[in-house]
Design a protein around this nucleic acid. Structure first.
Lengths: 236, 236
DNA sequence: TGTACATCAGTGAACGCGCGTTCACTGATGTAC
DNA sequence: TGTACATCAGTGAACGCGCGTTCACTGATGTAC
């Protein structure tokens, strides 16, 4: 963010055009800077770095802003981290909403879901980085926040599965257990997809096939699942 | 490592005792310092930090050694990271060896395996931190090394399952796919176990139960698995 | 066994650098009248 | 519409600090004779 003077100059007022930049309020500009800080963090992370190893100065540099501007938006790096987690949560909820919209295709349900999922991951790679990776390695604060978002996601997914009544004999608790397994498989696959060097269609296909088979196996298991008796044996 | 003079003083020579410390060669001492550097890194990581966020000086401080001593053992942090990955690989291989020793209990096989696994994770928490966490968030170099170790582990486990002939209809490829699923579930559970605050037996029991059920589901699925036809439909 | 010399694990001072954070500031945007 | 003042997003200098790495060193351990 340069001074407004020079920004106005560059914006081409002298050419008789009022650019988009001239129309937004101070508040909008502030939000845009905030976004570009979050974006900068995600960019650095997508270059293979963990959030915990990023520095405040690095992020402001990437965002094109002076280091002290950071404090207008976040108290510290932790607060930025939590904002990123919140973004990931939104992305995950949107994923479920889209899945619901597609309804229940009767054939090839898993393969088509995987295709949609893969596309979705590739369109929002950066937030999947946060969810899939920092879930395990972030600061305790960040890990806890992600765990909460992911549990939320698992619960919603379990509720959706229950509503679909595809496997009616399952209790809500079992559905949650199964969705937990599905989610770690999904996040693991997302991480693998994002690690793929581009231009390797064969490796990519193998990865997708493997993912499809793992999900198929899980749902095979779900179909064969019998609820455990409510009280386990005393010996265990 | 203090100077030998004072070390000898502290070692209690004046009390007429020759301590263990007095008996080891220079080479042994060097290895011990190397170990204490690795140990220091693991200690810091088990306090919730990622390897990538550790500094060389921090590690030498924790190891009780001057920063420059680091270079007698590792060229840089990357090399230390790879040494840690190697350590994790050894731990995983030992886990399989112990599992083999226990043979095939006919009842409650999964629950007893989980109990053994949990004990093993709790006895070697630090190396599981490396395997479970840095697998996704480490430097690209470290991630690749861990991926190699984990794939090795998956292959060995698949071979063991094949040798056991519990589910004889499965191809080696399917066994690998299934073991891949088992391993991400295992590593996820390890991460959860290590995150547990101590003294919460109920949360711990829930976690173990969930893990047991997920593995049970996977093996139910494996039992119901039919090999996919070698060539998928052209439409996919 | 004793002596003279080589090796080398660990030391400690020094360096230049990027870090997070403070502070007073600037000047465009927003508001009151 | 025009003016006078308030707000506040972003600036830039400055700070003390821990960082990775270099270098010459020390003195116990190891080796040759």
């Amino acid at each position: 963010m340069k001074k407004s003077k020079s920004r106005r100059d560059r914006a081409g007022v002298e050419a008789g055009k009022v650019t988009y930049e001239e129309l937004v309020s101070r508040q909008d500009r502030k939000l845009r800077t905030r976004d570009s800080l979050m974006d900068a963090a995600l960019t650095l992370m997508s270059q293979g770095r963990s959030f915990g190893s990023l520095s405040l100065r690095e992020i402001t540099r990437e965002a094109g802003v002076v280091p002290t501007a950071f404090y207008r938006h976040f108290r510290d790096m932790d607060e930025l981290g939590l904002a990123l987690v919140e973004g990931s949560g939104l992305i995950l909820r949107r994923l479920l909403r889209e899945a619901r919209k597609h309804g229940v295709p009767s054939t090839e349900i898993i393969r088509s879901s995987v295709t949609i999922y893969k596309k979705y991951v590739e369109e929002n790679p950066r937030y999947f980085l946060v969810a899939a990776r920092e879930r395990l390695t972030g600061s305790p604060l960040m890990r806890y926040a992600i765990r909460t978002e992911v549990n939320h996601f698992i619960n919603e997914m379990a509720q959706d599965l229950r509503d679909l009544r595809l496997i009616p004999q399952l209790s809500m608790e079992s559905l949650r257990m199964i969705c937990g397994l599905v989610v770690i498989t999904m996040l693991n696959a997302a991480s693998d997809i994002l690690d793929l060097p581009p231009g390797q269609p064969q490796a990519e296909q193998e990865l997708v096939d493997n993912f499809v088979r793992q999900l198929t196996l899980i749902f095979l298991g779900a179909g064969a699942w019998r609820e455990p008796s409510p009280r386990p044996a005393e010996t265990s």
